[in-house]
Structure formats: C-alpha cells, structure tokens
Amino acid sequence: MRFYWKMLRSDWIALLAMGFLLAMVLVALVGPLLIEPSMLRLNLRARHLPPFQLDQNWMYFLGADALGASIIARMVVAASTTLAIAFATVLLSLVIGTAIGLVTALRDNWLSAAVMRAIDVLLSIPSLLLAMVILYALGAHPINVIAVLTITRIPIFARTARSEALEIRERGFVAAARVMGSNDMHVIVKHIVPLVMPTLLAIAALEFAVVMLAESTLTFLGIGVQPPDVTWGLMVAEGQPYLASAWWVSLWPGLAIASIALCATIIGNWFRIANDPTLRSRLKAEVTSHA
C-alpha cells in the first residue's frame, strides 16, 4: 500500500484525479444533508438567473434553472443519485461478472459453455439499445436503471475474469494446490482472485466512467431517471431547450459528468500501469529516483 501511495504521489495528474473523485464522493455523501428544503424551493423571480451574480445569494452563484431553483443545490442533490447509480452498477457487475467468469473457467462442462454463449449474445447486442428497450418496458426508476446497466456491463467482467483464470489455472502452484486436496472454491479464493482482481479493478474504474455516460445518455433521451429524482444527466436534458438563452443550466452538470468520467479514466489507466509488471518496474525506478 505504501508503494502505491508513493507511485500516486509521483504522478501528479493521477493524484489530482483521485483527489477530485474523493471530493465528489464527499459532496455526494454529505452535501444532501446540508441542503435545506428552502434551497430547492422554486422561485420564479429567479428564473434563468445568470451565474456569477455577486449581489445574489451564494446558492445562485452558478445561476438558476427554468423554475428558479438553485443550480448549486440541485447539483449537490443530483451528485448522490448519479454517483450511487454508477457505483452500484459497477459493484454489482464486478461481483456477478467475476463470479461467472471464474466458475466457468474452472468447470469445463455443458453448463459453463451455455453460460458463456449467453454472455456472447449479450456482448453482440449494443448495450445502449438493450438498455433503452428494457427501460421502455420496465419504466425509468433508478433501481431499473441500475439493473439494466448492470446487465449490460456483466459480460465485460465475465469475459475478462474467465480469460485470466484460464491462464492462471494452468500454472504450477494451482496444480500443486489441487494435489494437496484443494477444491475449486479454495483455488478461486486463495490463488486466482488475488491475481485477477487488479485487472478487474482497473476495468471497474474505466467502467465507472462508461456507466455515468450511459446513464446520462439514457436520461437525456427521456428514458432514464425522471423527476422527482434528479441526476446530472436529467439536469442536462432539462436545460437542452434553453441552450441559446440559458446555457448554464446544462453546462455545469455537463462539466461535472465530463470531469468525473475523465478522472475515473485517468485512475483506471494509472491502476493498470501500477499493476503491470513491465510498466511497474519503470514506475519503481521513477519513484526511487524521486525519493
């Protein structure tokens, strides 16, 4: 852990990205508790109030929307919903997809083959199109959004975990563990998961950005999260008719989505480099030279 911290400190871009992500998580956790109901109250007198008006209440520093609600207050509340959907989707798809990939890699039978063919079918269907069809049938509830996006991301983790496990199971230490009487569960938990998890976590960081963009796209198209719930994607969609006259309504939540997606991508790429033996040796040399 200490070495990872040293590597992170040596890469100031990744360090800034990590700091920004942690700040946004803190805002999502604590922010809604600090937002009073009055801050979200509609105020038609402040309708489309421009940003950076120093003579106004600080809650209107980023402007107001079409109903006079504070952009800052709505973005803080929306942060919890947006990040919760992305985190829950990535966590569920990581756990379920990894379990499927590892089990099917260790058991070569007809059931494993059937499961992987089903995974191939899911991979062949455009994920956004599949999500649109299912949400149109089930309704645009946050739980449905999480479920649908999880289904579309499971094949990524399942395929990756299976390919990694197929290579690891042929190594000598796995054969030795089986000779000593270890069952499949023991082999998976003790020998395969520790080697597979770094790759899967790097993919999870990248998928976090993908899920955020997918959720925003679905909401922008009108089949994602709908009022009274609010997400950054919904705020962008609500401001779309006023881009010419009130650009700030869509700009700030759009920047938030882009910033989170960019930071998650940077962290995912850094984590991949940190866990690659070849690239890690270069990082070790850089960290040592800076020490």
Rank of each mutant, 00 (worst) to 15 (best):
L213N: 10
A202P: 09
S182L: 06
V236W: 03
Q240T: 12
H186C: 15
I188S: 06
L218E: 02
Q240F: 12
H191L: 07
A214Y: 05
G233R: 00
V210P: 10
M197H: 06
V189Y: 13
V225R: 02
G222C: 00
N183F: 01
V225S: 05
M185W: 15
L213K: 07
V211P: 11
P227M: 00
V189F: 14
S216D: 06
I223F: 06
V193P: 13
E238Q: 11
V196I: 06
V211N: 08
Y242T: 09
S182P: 05
W252Q: 08
W248L: 08
V193D: 12
A205R: 03
V193M: 15
E207Q: 15
W247G: 07
I223Q: 04
L201T: 03
H191I: 02
T217H: 05
L201I: 14
V196T: 12
W232N: 03
G224I: 01
I188E: 07
I192A: 05
S250G: 10
E207R: 08
A204R: 06
P253S: 05
G224H: 00
M180I: 08
F220L: 06
M235C: 07
M180G: 13
L200E: 14
L234N: 04
F208S: 10
G222N: 02
L201A: 05
Q240C: 07
W232R: 03
A256G: 11
Q226W: 02
A244Y: 11
L221N: 03
L255Y: 06
S250H: 03
L218F: 00
P227G: 01
A205N: 08
T217P: 09
L251D: 11
L243W: 06
I257L: 15
Y242L: 12
L255S: 07
S216R: 03
D229K: 03
G224Y: 01
A244L: 11
L251V: 14
L251M: 15
G181Q: 03
W248K: 06
W252Y: 15
S182F: 09
L221D: 07
P198R: 00
I257A: 13
D229L: 04
P198K: 00
A209Q: 03
T217W: 03
L221S: 05
L251C: 09
W232Q: 04
D229E: 12
L201Q: 07
L251N: 09
P198W: 00
T199E: 15
F208G: 12
S245Y: 12
V211E: 10
V196N: 06
